Computed example of a mutant assay.
Amino acid sequence: MSAARKRLAELGLTLPAVTPPLAAYVPAVRSGSHVYVSGQLPMADGRLVAVGKVGAEVTPEQAKELAARCALGGLAAIDHLVGIDAVTRVVKVTGFVAVAPGFTAVPAVINGASELLGEVFGDAGRHARSAVGVAELPLGAPVEVELIVEVG
């Protein structure tokens, strides 16, 4: 068992099934030594776990957990394409948060994804990041996360 898989097991996590694309794209693409993961919504069994704006219908704490779920979905897309064992470094995380007026704690929400990746990959999980508050996300999702990883 690879270090990443072992760490997921220690955390009590399993990779979910890859969510089928909702439009004209693929879940992940490899280009050279990088894998680019399409935006991941907080899905379970093909359905959104929550809808609404963070700071209104969704609490910041719930949104942080949803961001971690998005990152886990991204890892599933990577695993399906090249195998999670191939990941040598998490390069970049981009997180989008559907925010209620006045909600500005967007970075704290996306910490859910960043912290999960750090727990799974250790120092190789430390990454560059953008965290952006937006008016709307697909299907009314509160959070969306994209990943770029380096693979060996």
Rank of each mutant, 00 (worst) to 15 (best):
112 G>I: 07
136 E>C: 05
107 P>T: 11
95 G>T: 01
132 V>Q: 12
55 G>C: 02
85 D>S: 06
85 D>K: 01
127 H>T: 05
45 D>T: 10
39 G>S: 15
72 L>F: 03
118 G>D: 11
112 G>L: 05
77 A>F: 06
66 L>I: 12
73 G>W: 03
110 I>M: 04
123 D>S: 08
60 P>N: 15
57 E>Y: 11
128 A>L: 15
120 V>S: 05
119 E>S: 15
58 V>L: 11
148 I>P: 01
50 A>M: 13
124 A>P: 02
44 A>W: 11
130 S>F: 15
95 G>A: 08
73 G>K: 00
100 A>V: 04
78 I>P: 03
35 V>Q: 01
59 T>K: 06
53 K>E: 09
124 A>R: 12
51 V>T: 15
145 V>I: 11
113 A>D: 02
115 E>Y: 08
88 T>I: 13
113 A>I: 01
64 K>F: 04
35 V>I: 05
73 G>H: 03
130 S>G: 14
31 S>C: 11
111 N>H: 12
66 L>F: 12
37 V>Q: 00
121 F>S: 02
117 L>M: 04
38 S>W: 00
62 Q>Y: 04
92 K>D: 10
83 G>L: 04
74 G>I: 02
101 P>N: 09
79 D>E: 00
38 S>T: 03
54 V>D: 07
130 S>I: 14
110 I>F: 01
55 G>H: 00
54 V>T: 11
94 T>K: 14
45 D>H: 10
142 P>R: 04
67 A>P: 03
32 G>M: 05
128 A>S: 13
83 G>S: 07
90 V>G: 00
38 S>M: 01
146 E>D: 11
144 E>K: 13
115 E>W: 06
35 V>A: 04
51 V>D: 03
110 I>H: 02
44 A>V: 11
107 P>A: 04
69 R>L: 11
130 S>A: 14
145 V>F: 01
130 S>C: 07
58 V>W: 09
87 V>M: 08
53 K>R: 15
36 Y>C: 13
101 P>E: 13
36 Y>K: 09
139 L>K: 12
76 A>H: 06
57 E>F: 14
96 F>N: 09
88 T>M: 06
56 A>F: 08
99 V>W: 09
67 A>Q: 05
34 H>G: 10
138 P>S: 14
52 G>K: 01
35 V>M: 05
63 A>H: 02
124 A>L: 15
65 E>R: 07
92 K>R: 08
100 A>Y: 02
34 H>R: 15
44 A>D: 13
43 M>L: 09
